[in-house]
Design a binder for these strands. Structure first.
Lengths: 354, 354
DNA sequence: TTGTAAGCGTTATCAC
DNA sequence: GTGATAACGCTTACAA
């Protein structure tokens, strides 16, 4: 058997997959050196005649570059790890945009969904590290701190979104949680509401804290005392919105307005209200963080705080490309984007009766 | 410098990443052979004393297994390619479940989103092939046919969901589109509707065809002639739902009921209706394929056809694990799941006036 | 420009 | 069991 032969299918097939042609097969078939084929594959200059030989050989052998082998040499996998808590509408849209933006530079996302489970978070980070992803995008979830520190030490670029983890030197893309929250609550105050309840997110997440602080600031500035019973601490999740809505609305003096710190909990609130036959904005004015299709279509539309999802995805991408390009060793950057308050029918002036 | 030294950080760092300890460093530090460390890492039997040495060395060097190198040897990456058209609610839920199920066997999803763009589809499949994903999950989108055939020849296991591509020998997870559609339209007929419009999906997708056939079958069986103007051919997308709703509802004799072939187009229909101040079910009865959070919360709730998303994710996972396990060469299997029709407030008996 | 060959970090096959 | 060592398929000096 000469070196000119196509790949020999009688070799033990690796894991049931057929033996694919290698760069060596191409080189042999084309009658050039391996190095030349490699140069061609990487888009560098090649003698015209050789180029044609190589193209023909690639075609003939159905050659497929083995990115795994290349990754081993170059220590570049073109994979970006993405660790998100859940596939809610916000994340779906962000992921879609991230995938599209990263595609432009030949990269793809490897996705893990942690559901706030510390074991999963650790497992995901270990997996990403072992797979040598080029970079990592994740919600700044505190349970990850230790593993993340290790990754940073190993030189893996990381971009946090949504929450920052104080003290970690990594790139960050955030929104003005506090300010947006402040403005949203002020909108309720403008409408003469005084009994305003808040559903907070997890306060160990920086976004949860800041959104709550915005609420507090607006109330304090308006000179409105906050009844402790109107402060409901949630977990970001739908079922927590459901439970807390019940608790709040069954008070002797239920709130006339409610500020909910994220989309998921608002879904829970709406479910409970619907079950009870209560209607927005007559029985309650409601404003929610996150703007999603449902809030636009719901009757009435839900007044909400729209995070600039495209902007977030773009910011993340640009940070990553910078880290993977020339700005490898630049100091960590934090990009903070602002939100829009979108007025819809779920908020109205406090009824005189209340 | 002896072999016992920890990795030397003065070596040229690959792409700015620190040089990580290798299995060789661990072996040297532990005073055993490389092969022994490998055996240990892969959970095989090791002499007790060596085990402790190795564990200590791993700890000391912060050793991290390089999955890329392992993948190159074993031709197993533990990555599953996933190619979806868009991140709508259906896919979000499916992806979340798939990711969770696959995690159990140490695998992760690499995701591409094609937006029905043929170039992207081709690019994605080439990327997956180059990255040597262990298997591929994709919507059976016809533009992919040629590339997919090649992948099958190369021995990459593929699971189609949603649509089948006739003539391709691959595993498939489908739902009873035709039957579900048939039952849904029969529900409208039971409610005495006669002017029933349909918004079809793309008819070159098998799901689009089958859903349309179900409509036709129900109408024919009931002896209802279908006015051609009530057949609106859509693209699955929201804007197409919006446009077609307008076209249909502005007919001289608009339909009294509408069957919409997917979630995205229904969003478009609802948007248009909302803009016009038209209400379900008074101005129109509507039933939609796909059951999502919005349809449950909407007022009135949207009568819909619920695909068994968990079942789909489980079926896909089991097919993949079988292919990657002992059933490597089993003949292709197709799993077909049934759907539930969920009755809500968007459908009611045809008003006497109509 | 091209050919040659030394790795990259594993796994797997041998003798021992 | 363990230790040496040959792959795996590619990139990249270096020499020609």
């Amino acid at each position: 058997m000469s070196d000119q032969d196509p790949p020999d299918d009688t070799l033990p097939p690796a894991r049931g997959r057929r033996r694919l042609a290698t760069i060596a097969d191409v080189a042999a078939t084309a009658g050039v050196a391996i190095g030349t084929v490699s140069r061609f594959l990487n888009g560098r200059e090649i003698r015209e005649a050789n180029r044609h030989q190589i193209e023909a050989a690639i075609e003939k052998l159905s050659y497929r570059r083995n990115a795994v082998a290349a990754a081993m040499k170059t220590d570049t996998t073109h994979m970006i790890g993405l660790l998100i808590p859940t596939f809610d509408e916000f994340h779906s849209e962000m992921v879609e945009q991230l995938a599209t933006l990263l595609r432009a530079s030949g990269r793809a996302l490897v996705i893990y969904c942690h559901s706030h489970d510390a074991d999963v978070i650790h497992g995901a980070l270990d997996f990403f590290a072992a797979q040598r992803v080029d970079a990592l995008i994740m919600d700044g979830v505190t349970q990850a701190r230790q593993r993340v520190e290790q990754l940073i030490r190993e030189g893996v670029p990381i971009v946090f979104y949504n929450n920052e983890i104080p003290g970690l030197a990594a790139d960050c893309v955030l929104v003005e949680n506090r300010n947006a929250s402040y403005r949203a609550v002020n909108h309720l105050i403008d409408l003469r509401h005084e009994r305003i309840a808040v559903l907070t997110g997890e306060l160990h997440d920086s976004s949860g804290r800041q959104r709550f602080e915005g609420f507090e600031a607006a109330m304090a500035e308006a000179g409105l005392a906050v009844d402790r019973r109107y402060i409901a601490h949630g977990t970001w999740r739908t079922n927590s919105g459901y439970e807390l809505a019940r608790r709040l609305m069954q008070l002797n003096k239920p709130p006339t307005a409610m500020y909910v710190s994220n989309y998921g909990m608002t879904i829970g609130v709406l479910s409970w209200l619907k079950e009870q036959g209560l209607r927005l904005p007559d029985d309650l004015s409601l404003v929610s963080f996150d703007d999603v299709a449902l809030f636009r279509l719901y009757e009435p539309g839900i007044t909400s705080i729209a995070q600039p999802i495209s902007g977030i995805a773009q910011a993340i991408t640009s940070l990553i490309e910078a880290r993977l390009g020339d700005d490898r060793d630049a100091p960590p950057r934090t990009i903070t984007l602002s939100c829009d308050i979108i007025l819809r029918g779920s908020t109205r002036r406090r009824p005189a009766s209340a």
